[in-house]
């Protein structure tokens, strides 16, 4: 058993796996006798031999080469298959090239996404997509067209006539919410920081806020977005009445003036009180003075027509 131990130590030493303590133990054993040293030499020689790979198999190389040639012939890819594979490779290459070219063409042809900034007051501004906007004083409208969506950012008050494009909705972002349309006319009043008022003239408009609440407005309807909610409002303010040209009346009856206002700006306005509708204007009068007051239009009724207007009638 002792010999097994030292053979193991000798092999560990040869494989550089021996510890220092084992090395000392082995040195003592080697010192002990010449016989031990002779045995150790044999073991070390055996270890060296184990790294050699003697040729134990002799071969007929001609025969072996024939077998290799035969295997090469059997496993060679057939020419028709090679041609077929090459044809596929060429076809795939052409397809890739066409696809890449088409994508490149589309990228080059698509309009660059640049931002256009419009400052009010401005009338009849044409956007690149064909839509028209009117901006009031102190209003700014930033417009971008990414190719998939038309987007504007509004501060202030504006009237829009959006050119219909089903593939590219038009979105208008305000501080309190978003207005989405396809093609329609409407007004947005975002001049008040606490609320955004949207009044629709034609088509449908969708309002949404950060809380993902939405409402849809039809022609003649008004919606209001505040920080807390989004709802339909009951204003009778005409959409974009401020953008109409001034109307000048001279020696016209009150009835005529009101009918004109009703036809051109505001529906549902009918004389219903004590004021005589056949009174005549004493002096020329510019309607915009009346129109510009949104406060007035929100609570408009014949009985509350400003004295400033009425005193012109005799």
């Amino acid at each position: 058993m002792e010999e097994d131990r030292y053979i193991d130590l000798l092999l560990k030493e040869a494989d550089a796996e021996i510890t220092d303590a084992e090395q000392l133990e082995l040195a003592d054993w080697l010192e002990a006798s010449e016989a031990n040293r002779t045995k150790a030499d044999q073991i070390r020689k055996g270890w060296e031999v184990s790294a050699q790979a003697p040729n134990v198999i002799s071969l007929d190389l001609d025969e072996q080469y024939k077998l290799v040639r035969e295997k090469i012939r059997r496993t060679a890819p057939s020419k028709s298959k090679t041609i077929q594979v090459k044809a596929w490779q060429i076809a795939a290459g052409i397809l890739l090239l066409v696809g890449f070219s088409w994508i490149s063409y589309r990228i080059l042809q698509s309009p660059p996404t640049k931002m256009l900034v419009y400052q009010g007051p401005s009338d009849h501004l044409k956007l690149p997509d064909g839509s028209t906007i009117w901006l009031k004083q102190n209003t700014q409208f930033q417009f971008t067209d990414s190719g998939t969506v038309r987007q504007g950012r509004l501060t202030g008050r504006a009237y829009f006539e959006i050119k219909r494009d089903a593939s590219q909705p038009f979105e208008i972002i305000t501080t309190l919410g978003k207005i989405t349309v396809l093609g329609t006319s409407f007004e947005i009043d975002a001049s008040n920081v606490n609320e955004v008022i949207v009044t629709v003239s034609e088509g449908k408009v969708k309002l949404s806020n950060d809380q993902q609440e939405t409402i849809e407005l039809n022609p003649g309807e008004t919606g209001k977005i505040t920080e807390l909610e989004i709802e339909k409002a009951h204003y009778i303010q005409p959409a974009g009445s401020w953008r109409l040209p001034p109307r000048i009346f001279n020696q016209e009856s009150l009835g005529t003036v009101l009918r004109d206002i009703e036809e051109n700006t505001l529906s549902g306005l009918t004389p219903n009180n004590h004021r005589p509708t056949n009174a005549k204007l004493a002096l020329p009068y510019r309607i915009p003075t009346l129109m510009n007051s949104s406060l007035y239009w929100r609570r408009c009724s014949m009985s509350k027509l400003p004295e400033k207007v009425l005193h012109n009638f005799t």
Partner: peptide, 10 residues
């Protein structure tokens, strides 16, 4: 092949 086959087989 002649140079290396025998060694590789072994």
């Amino acid at each position: 092949f002649y140079h290396h086959h025998t060694a590789l087989v072994n």
